[in-house]
Write a protein that binds this DNA or RNA. Structure first.
Lengths: 341, 341
DNA sequence: ATTTGACCCTCACGCGACGTGAGGCGCCAG
DNA sequence: CTGGCGCCTCACGTCGCGTGAGGGTCAAAT
């Protein structure tokens, strides 16, 4: 019952080279050699090889197999669980990849072979998202899973904005304000109403001029929309404020627009962590929130009161983007406990 | 707008080494170098890198990306489809692997950590199956997807057979015949009634003495069961035949047992291919079938008629293993057209 | 003017599981 | 004794980089 390599290879479906390799790395050494130096395998070697093949079929590395087989009492279930987790992860990865490819393929087929350029632009956007968002975040980011229709909507919005810019329309005009409202509503929907996602998205666009170009969102366009959105909200504050108050706010409010998302994100995080409004972290947030308020509304408590009133009574402000009632309540409590304490 | 490697690496999330590598293999060469030899990347280089990253995110190899990007009009959908097929295949593979692992894991957990040996034996069996059956066949092979209960049933059967052998029981005894009947019924179920699978299974067991030992099915045991199954069937033929006919059959029938599966497999294949019974291939099969019949029943047509009668009237023979009515009809037609022609 | 420290260069080995020769011996049949 | 097959060892190639080693470059701080 002594087998030479070729014979063993034939019977196990491996190649001779593979058996040589196993010999080299010490995974399976033939128990004898012939006078001429031929490898001679005994029954026990064959048995070990069978085990090796079995464990290999689980995707285990040769090194792992070696240590496993040389241990007297291998930690079976631990090893299996590790392998399963590894596989599970790979399956998820590849499935996501395949789905994305399927999407892109549909696009290519339906769209009558768009130019390589367009197709690659979409793809480049997705890989940028990959860099800026974790896999879990990507799962929650509707923009990432967007289909062609949704991208088309964005392109239309951008085109609309470009047209307004071309005509030299003011951000304060009703057309611009209307556009900004729709823009932000869509943006809120496409970030799943999560200010943290919005913030990352902003960071991405700030860092990657190329990303904006993929969609046609130039800096000019996004500045314009931001301005117009500020104007949109200002119209609702108008009748709650005196002329002086409004002038102050009108001057400073637009510059503060980009400061909200980080604060909202932190607010939401505190809420989700279950931090109570009296705790220091919440109070710190409240302080920063008030500081921001003061930057565009001055430090008169009466003015602040008016703004709060507007926020509560104006439907457009009440359903403010990226903020829900729970967040507002929480903020209110934090502010109250701050001023009380 | 000239970027050095470090800057480009930071902005793309790659490492400097990766960019060096891309340069080495000619995938992305910086369009300029500084006097000191520093790599300097232009906008167009960055654009190309974005494309590279995009295609990489699809799991494409660097070589493929290179040829793709250097072509003037890349065959987009072909490439995508190829990638998708590749991914699909990997997903299926890994999923099967994970499922198998899950099964094995259950076994380990429920079975109170069986000895590594037992566990590995099961695993070794599965890898042997992998070698002898194609993935599609494995899908159709119930034995392969067997759970512990089913394996336990087989072990019980084997134990039963071993006990009979120990006691020196004759294969012609009623206990042996009953066991053989149950054995074959289970075997038919576990090969999905497909004689082709049965044949491969037989081939595997013939080539791999180790495989038999995993289940405890030694050559002695399988020979015994085969004998007993012949005896089982013979009991039903008994009362249709004269003493002389039966003696002849009794002597030769057992030796012919292992010749049926290949014929049945070919029969089934012809049927599935839609080959008509008058065609040469079917007639050739009919000839071989008759030749086999003659080997254990002689060449008297009257005897053959009696056997056919038994096959039709005896329920135990009628529901003969691995043969269904369509196969029998087809065979009958082939034989008829052979004798008529 | 020099030193520091961050950045850049090339060269080259390493991984994991073998594939693929090259060059040379052993063994058996004709 | 010769041809053919199987065996041996040695060693490079694969793929996508990681990880140093050993040494220049450049701007700011001393």
């Amino acid at each position: 019952m002594l087998l030479r390599v070729g014979e063993l290879a034939r019977r196990t479906g491996l190649t001779v080279r593979t058996l040589h390799h196993y010999d080299d790395i010490g995974l399976l050494k033939p128990s004898t050699r012939s006078d001429a130096g031929y490898r001679l395998y005994r029954r026990q070697d064959v048995a070990r090889l069978h085990r090796i093949q079995a464990l290999r079929s689980l995707g285990m590395s040769l090194a792992d197999i070696g240590t496993l087989l040389d241990q007297p009492s291998p930690p079976l279930s631990t090893v299996i669980e590790r392998q399963m987790r590894l596989l599970e992860h790979q399956i998820v990865q590849k499935t996501q990849l395949r789905d994305r490819l399927a999407n892109l393929h549909r696009q290519v087929v339906n769209g009558e072979e768009p130019a390589m350029d367009d197709w690659l632009k979409t793809l480049e956007l997705m890989t940028m998202y990959d860099r800026y968002f974790s896999p879990e975040e990507l799962d929650r980011l509707p923009l990432y899973q967007a289909d062609n229709a949704r991208w088309a909507e964005w392109k239309d919005l951008v085109k609309e904005a470009e047209a307004l810019l071309q005509q030299g329309t003011s951000p304060a005009s009703s057309e611009a304000r209307d556009l900004a409202m729709r823009w932000m509503a869509k943006l809120e929907r496409d970030t799943a109403g999560d200010p943290a996602l919005l913030e990352k998205l902003n960071a991405m666009h700030a860092n990657e001029p190329d990303a904006q170009e993929q969609l046609g969102i130039s800096t000019r366009v996004s500045d314009f929309v931001m301005q117009a959105f500020a104007e949109y909200k200002l119209t609702f504050y108008r009748r709650y404020l005196s002329d002086a108050e409004f002038d102050l706010m009108r001057e400073n409010y637009p510059q503060c627009m980009h400061e909200w998302p980080p604060l909202m994100a932190r607010l939401r995080q505190l809420l989700e962590q279950g931090t109570r409004p009296e705790e220091p972290a919440a109070q710190q947030l409240a302080r920063e929130w008030l500081a921001l308020l003061q930057r565009f509304a001055g430090d008169d408590p009466a003015t602040h009161q008016k703004i709060r009133q507007a926020n509560e009574q104006e439907p457009a402000l009440k359903d403010s983007t990226w903020m829900n009632d729970r967040m507002k309540d929480y903020l209110g409590q934090a502010v109250a406990s701050l001023t009380a304490g």
